[in-house]
Nucleic acid binder design. Structure first.
Length: 924
RNA sequence: GCGGAUGUGGCGAAAUUGGUAACCGCACUAGACUUAGGAUCUAGCGCCGCAAGGCCUGGGGGUUCGAGUCCCUUCAUCCGCACCA
């Protein structure tokens, strides 16, 4: 019988399921290995061939590790809350849960055909109440915590309360709201319950705040910064504007430093680590105060600067238009102009602001500040190049050292004062940013680095500022004005949010009549009737953002059925970090940062024992589509083959890739796909075939280049698909799906099969002892494959398999002693065919392949450094000679190449490869 | 502008990490077989050259007995961030 994948793949998939081969043990003495894929959002389109790329890799590793005696956790689940199901619900009225359920079934069926070893008994779905109960529970723990800077961790809010009762908040060092007032214990104890709650909210790690958010009117919800690209929503590409709204926030900024430090201990790519570092954006500088003049206006302007050394070069101040300070600072004469500008700036969309970065706009407030170093009176301006959200929202402008300040000063005719030697001679003084200071009073002659320290010392002495570390990271908005998400487990007494008692969780999503916002503009949950806690308290109407569930799902897999806890301590201690996490780069900052944040938090509060969720991260590349193109002769009802298209003026048209075989178009199929072309002429190319052009672009319905894995499995086999995707190139790299190359992988599987069967389809594996050469190729391959898998090099392994089969073919090897370890080695990649052949070898005890083979050095040893050299006319092995070298009293007359000569002079290092072709003659 | 990568045959790529550059596959060429297939087998396949031989890892320089690999410099492409003071 020939290789018949359809039959054997179904058979083995059923066998594995029936015997629960891949169910992970909970209690095990074995070492553990946790391999994880980023769980998919179950979209209606189903899987395309890009999805399984990472899944195949993690499947190979988990099979490999399991065969090496590890207890492997390799689960799969679904990130099943999300916008598309809700959009569909708005359009059709169908409950998003139904759509979601159907899509998940499709996904599971597709995944099943690829032969993955997932333990489905641990499946999670973020939209399932069993799961979101614990998302809500974790939210409550965050609500019940504050960040103690003294112990540098999150602690229960009850401890903060007892501190307040004892000492007020004067000795507390916490990450809290800017406007938190100081109070003594006495004052605290006199506060009303309501006042206390308001104050506590300033300390909680999740809190309600009015903040400026990215509002997307089309989607009807707010978006996080990482959900926006170039001023448009990442999903759907709708415009985004800035809007002030009451939101739930996560105080992720408390973890800035830990999130930054933690990156050093994990094995992620430099690119992703760097992206996270940039996102956190740590910078060193100083915070300092400028007095306002005339002193009729009370208070000071507080700025953050990384260049306190340029203090003498400050010639104006700029504040962000959003700040309340604007009103205070504006003089009556300027009022009208300022109001106009502020209003203009406010209504500018996020997109306009970003695309017009080079445009300089601003307005003078009429007020002045005093530079206490130079004593100069400097004007205060408003401009939207200053961001309200970074630092203090106020900038001390040094036009001689900062490009933007320079542009601004030039535009508005503000004076420029150079403070760095050499810059005064340039048209653009900002070209020199570091050097010796000039025009800077007592700082003159110092270099910039020393001056920074000096100025910080000075402002600290004068009490007008201090050295400060600033982070770019903002607190994360945790509200979405949507239906299909986790309800926030909170109710309101007046405007005080209170968490629901744990026993009432999960707070179920209520049924509503329509999935749209209410007429009053409340989120969809506002439609739920009689939806009140204890029939009187309003629930929170927003839901959690998409990243809530995905920030901890990897913990749930460890103990997915637990009804008492999100996961038992025992389970989280055993499984600990994810050893290998595979997924796309699109989550480089969003999901991967939030997960790290929640993990840090859960560790602080003692719920788990590890700080970093993902030890090793691999970002698999995208599989791009190979679009097929046909060329229509301009203004005529004719198509022309690719090879002749230069003879015509043409327009191109995408054609469904399934209508193209190789490069050749199936014209009839095309005509029935596009009936309007039924009478068109097709000008075929040289060999009578109609050739299509092609182009690599994103795999998308729009380009008709989506390849469905089911089709590949049906036409070839799951093993072919697995092998091919791994063979395409390095996992991390993006690469096009080129259907022409699949044949090679399929051919290999048939070649493998024919090692076991002769031309007459007789299974003819022999029990004879293998030859030395046979052992050698086998062990060489095992060694290489093991090493490659240990360093997650997936594509090179496939080459090794192919080479081995070629070699065994050439040796006409049909020995069982070789085949057994060979199949065991190949099983992680191509589990179906190897199991089948394994079973066909009959007398093997276990029907299921369970062990990865070991290689034996003894078959490989002679490979190293055995090239003969001639010494005194006698053939010797170089390594033997090298071993004697040091003791030997050698006078040499070398007739060899320079390398060997140098080596004999003692200059060359330990290792030498001598080209076999050139036998070297050394006379000793 | 800042940051991260990548650059090797016609194509996808490999190189035991500083030691014979191009494993393996695709495409291509020639041949064999044949139940004519989208099958299989054999041989060839970086460039120049009839050959011996010479030249090849984006360009230039350096370190080294030896560089695709390390260092400097330069160019090109891709990705991420971006008025962050």
């Amino acid at each position: 019988m020939d290789y018949n994948p359809q039959e054997i793949e179904a058979k083995w998939q059923a066998y594995w399921e029936e015997h629960k081969i891949y169910q992970t043990e909970t209690n095990s003495d074995k070492p553990k290995f946790y391999a994880l894929d980023m769980f998919p959002y179950p979209s209606g389109a189903g899987l395309h061939v890009g999805h399984p790329l990472g899944y195949i890799a993690s499947d190979i590793i988990s099979r490999f590790k399991r065969m090496q005696g590890y207890n492997v956790l390799h689960p799969m689940g679904f990130d099943s809350f999300g916008l598309p199901a809700e959009q569909y619900a708005i359009e059709t009225g169908q409950h998003p849960a139904i759509t979601t359920k159907q899509n998940i079934e499709t996904f599971k069926a597709q995944l099943g055909k690829l032969g993955f070893d997932y333990d489905w008994s641990r499946e999670v779905q973020t939209s399932s109440p069993d799961f979101y109960k614990w998302t809500q529970w974790i939210f409550q723990q965050i609500f019940d915590s504050w960040y103690n800077q003294k112990t540098d961790k999150a602690e229960p809010i009850s401890e903060l309360i007892s501190e307040f009762e004892k000492n007020g908040n004067t000795q507390v060092k916490a990450d809290c709201d800017e406007d938190t007032p100081s109070f003594s214990a006495e004052e605290w104890n006199k506060f009303s319950a309501e006042e206390k709650q308001h104050l506590l909210l300033k300390y909680r790690l999740t809190y309600v705040a009015d903040s400026i958010v990215n509002w997307c009117p089309v989607l009807g919800t707010v978006l996080a910064n990482d959900e926006i690209k170039d001023g448009f929503s990442e999903r759907g590409g709708h415009p985004v504007e800035r809007k002030k709204m009451r939101q739930w926030m996560m105080r992720i900024t408390a973890y800035s430093e830990k999130l930054l430090q933690g990156l050093d201990g994990i094995e992620w790519s430099d690119a992703v680590k760097e992206m996270q570092r940039n996102w956190i954006g740590k910078s060193f500088g100083a915070e300092m105060e400028f007095e306002i003049d005339p002193s009729g206006v009370s208070g000071v302007l507080k700025v953050f600067t990384t260049r306190p050394d340029t203090i003498y070069g400050v010639t104006f101040m700029v504040i962000a238009p959003e700040l309340d300070l604007v009103d205070t600072l504006t003089t009556p004469e300027q009022k009208e102009e300022v109001a106009k500008y502020v209003n203009w700036a406010k209504n500018r969309s996020e997109r306009e602001r970003q695309s017009e970065v080079k445009t300089v706009t601003g307005v003078f407030t009429g007020s002045y500040a005093i530079n206490s170093f130079s004593g100069e009176k400097i004007p205060i301006w408003i401009a939207d190049y200053v961001l309200a959200g970074y630092g203090t929202g106020v900038v001390m402008a040094v036009p001689s050292s900062d490009d933007r300040d320079f542009r601004f000063a030039t535009q508005f005719g503000i004076s420029i004062k150079c403070v760095i030697e050499g810059s005064e001679d340039l048209d653009d003084p900002t070209e020199i940013k570091h050097g010796k200071l000039i025009n800077s009073g007592s700082l003159n002659g110092m270099n910039t680095q020393d001056a920074i320290q000096e100025v910080i010392k000075e402002i600290e002495k004068r009490g007008i500022g201090k050295g400060k570390i600033n982070y770019r990271l903002r607190d994360a908005v945790f509200s979405r004005q949507r239906y299909w998400g986790e309800p926030v487990p909170v109710y309101f007494e007046g405007d005080i949010p209170k968490v629901l008692p744990e026993m009432t969780l999960p707070l179920h999503l209520p049924e509503i009549d329509e999935y749209k916002p209410t007429e009053e503009g409340e989120p969809p949950l506002g439609r739920a009737e009689n939806w009140k806690y204890e029939d009187k308290y309003e629930y929170e109407l927003t839901t959690m953002p998409g990243w809530a569930g995905s920030s901890w799902y990897f913990l749930r897999y460890m103990d997915a059925q637990n009804n008492e806890e999100f996961a038992s301590k025992k389970a989280t201690e055993y499984w600990n970090q994810v050893d290998l996490y595979i997924g796309g780069t699109e989550h480089a900052v969003g999901h991967l940062l939030y997960s790290r944040f929640w993990t840090q938090f859960l560790c602080d509060r003692g719920f788990i024992n590890h700080r970093e969720p993902f030890k090793k991260l691999i970002n698999q590349g995208m599989i791009q589509g190979m679009s097929a193109l046909v060329y229509r002769v301009k203004d005529e009802d004719k198509f022309v083959s690719f090879d002749l298209k230069n003879d015509y003026e043409t327009t191109e048209l995408h054609v469904d890739v399934s209508l193209v075989e190789g490069d050749v178009l199936d014209i009839e199929a095309f005509k029935s796909w596009r009936p309007e072309t039924a009478n068109y002429e097709f000008i075929t190319g040289k060999d009578g075939k109609f050739i299509c052009g092609n182009r690599v672009e994103k795999m998308s319905k729009r380009w008709y280049n989506v390849v469905n894995p089911d089709a590949v499995v049906a036409r070839y086999s799951a093993d072919t698909m697995r092998l091919y995707e791994m063979f395409l190139g390095p996992l991390e790299q993006s690469k096009p799906w080129d259907p022409k190359n699949i044949d090679g992988s399929f051919r290999f599987l048939r070649k493998l099969w024919r090692l076991f069967e002769n031309e007459q389809s007789e299974f003819y594996v022999s029990g004879d002892a293998p030859s030395k050469d046979e052992w050698k190729v086998l062990h060489r391959t095992i060694k290489k494959v093991k090493e490659d898998l240990d360093r997650y090099s997936f594509n090179t392994v496939v080459s090794e398999f192919m080479k081995l089969v070629n070699d065994l073919n050439a040796l006409k090897c049909n020995k069982q002693a070789i085949f057994e370890p060979m199949l065991r080695m190949m099983a992680p990649y191509i589990p179906h065919i190897t199991e089948e052949l394994w079973a066909k070898m009959g007398h093997i005890k276990s029907i299921h392949i369970e062990q990865f083979p070991d290689f034996d050095e003894k078959y490989l040893k002679e490979d190293a450094f055995t090239y003969p050299i001639m010494i005194n006319g006698k053939k010797r092995h170089l390594m033997d000679f090298a071993a004697e070298m040091n003791q030997a009293d050698i006078t040499t007359e070398v007739l060899a190449d320079e390398t060997v000569q140098k080596w004999l002079e003692g200059k060359a290092p330990k290792k030498i490869i001598v080209v076999p072709k050139k036998i070297v003659n050394i006379v000793v």
